[in-house]
């Protein structure tokens, strides 16, 4: 019997305590919801959001493609013909020379899992995480971002050039093959020499505007 009344008492008193707590929250406590579009939280320092590729620095080395666990990066490359410079300077900002055009560099952010695995292997640190996280789209295809700086026509042109040059090289190779003693040795230095000789004047000429700017 005592327990019975104690139960009743406990029932009421505990409900009362609970109700007072919620009442306190209702009346006096500040609301802590962050009103998102107007109010934003400071993002953490190493947050992982949308990737950005600084195509000027990309050397088309394919490292990021291989690192990606979900295969959402797609790259196409075209060999640069001697005498043609890749990008504005033909060099990365760190001074590394670029030998490949990148007519296609797409990242499908619908697939991307933001694991950041593609960032670390990049030799030129040109693929990195930005702080953009609001990029929803109505069409899934709109989430495929293309980072290349070449238009289609340009890419086509480069491709033709590369093909022509490849044919040329083929002919040269055949010509070289006719001379049995030196087979491969002349080939490599030849291309290298050409690249170097091509690049040196270009880089000089391109250095000027960059300094001006």
């Amino acid at each position: 019997m005592r327990k019975y009344f104690k139960n009743i008492y406990l029932g009421f008193s505990t409900i009362w305590i609970g109700m007072m707590i919620t009442l306190k929250h209702l009346l006096f406590y500040k609301n802590i919801t962050i009103q998102y579009p107007e109010q934003r939280l400071q993002l953490p320092e190493r947050e992982r959001n949308r990737l950005y590729v600084n195509i000027d620095d990309c050397i088309g080395c394919d490292q990021c493609v291989r690192a990606c666990p979900v295969n959402c990066i797609k790259i196409e490359t075209i060999k640069a013909v001697p005498g043609d410079k890749v990008g504005k300077t033909g060099e990365t900002s760190a001074g590394k020379k670029k030998a490949l055009f990148v007519p296609k560099f797409t990242i499908d952010f619908a697939k991307c899992c933001y694991c950041e695995l593609c960032v670390f292997p990049c030799p030129t640190v040109c693929i990195y995480m930005t702080d953009v996280f609001e990029f929803s789209e109505f069409q899934r295809n709109d989430l495929v971002y293309d980072f290349t700086d070449l238009t289609k026509e340009q890419a086509e042109e480069k491709r033709k050039k590369a093909e022509e040059w490849a044919l040329e090289m083929q002919k040269k190779k055949e010509a070289a093959a006719k001379k049995p003693p030196e087979k491969k040795v002349p080939l490599k230095p030849e291309t290298n020499d050409k690249n170097k000789s091509d690049e040196s004047p270009d880089s000089k000429s391109d250095d000027k505007p960059s300094k001006d700017s």
Partner: peptide, 13 residues
Amino acid sequence: KVSAYMQDRYGPN
């Protein structure tokens, strides 16, 4: 609204 304010939220706004 009541539930929101009791949980320190804003509710529909």
